[in-house]
């Protein structure tokens, strides 16, 4: 059974309460159709369970299969430097059907980023390193495709619907 390496820390993007009893980590790719499919289901899980769960997203861009995946991950990390990681994350999935090189700047404007800063940040080594570190942690954690989910640091063998079902059952 594969486990999450390294564990969730302040370096991660975390949505929800630290007091939550369940932590869900997703390794995702912004150009992956299965991840886009998972995105509203994760939202529904977050709404259903509220403070009981927290959600963490780590980048796992499959660059050879998806030409915009890495750039999209950089855009999310650059937005994070302006405290708008989740706004960019959501905006990219909402607009996945029209992903292109020019989309990220448009989204940056839409979510209200300082564009000049964003354009600078997206090209830095630090932002690139963050995405690569996430990818490497996924390799070490046994990610075998996107999306891959971890529940309290143990790999969950199933898709987002299965995850929702499992959480509902364990809440009963």
């Amino acid at each position: 059974m594969s486990t999450l390496k390294p564990e969730v820390s302040s370096k991660d993007h975390i949505e929800g309460s630290d007091a939550a009893s369940i932590t869900i980590v997703e390794y995702g790719d912004y150009q992956c159709p299965h991840c886009a499919h998972a995105y509203p289901i994760i939202k529904e899980i977050e709404q259903t369970f509220g403070d009981q769960i927290r959600f963490v997203f780590r980048h796992f861009p499959l660059q050879e299969s998806h030409e915009f995946a890495f750039q999209a991950a950089l855009a999310a990390e650059a937005a994070a430097l302006q405290d708008k990681f989740w706004e960019m994350h959501d905006a990219i999935y909402d607009n996945q059907y029209r992903l292109s090189e020019d989309l990220f700047q448009e989204l940056a404007e839409t979510i209200g980023l300082d564009i000049e800063q964003f354009e600078k940040d997206i090209q830095t080594d630090a932002v690139k390193q963050k995405v690569e570190d996430d990818f490497e942690s996924g390799v070490r954690s046994g990610v075998n495709g996107t999306p891959s989910f971890y529940v309290n640091e143990t790999k969950f063998d199933g898709g987002p619907e299965d995850l929702f079902e499992m959480l509902k059952e364990s809440a009963e």
Binding site: S2, V139, R140, S141, G142, V143, N144, G145, D157
Partner: peptide, 10 residues
Amino acid sequence: AVNPGADGIL
């Protein structure tokens, strides 16, 4: 049916 990933290899 299971894709084994690469953690074991590494």
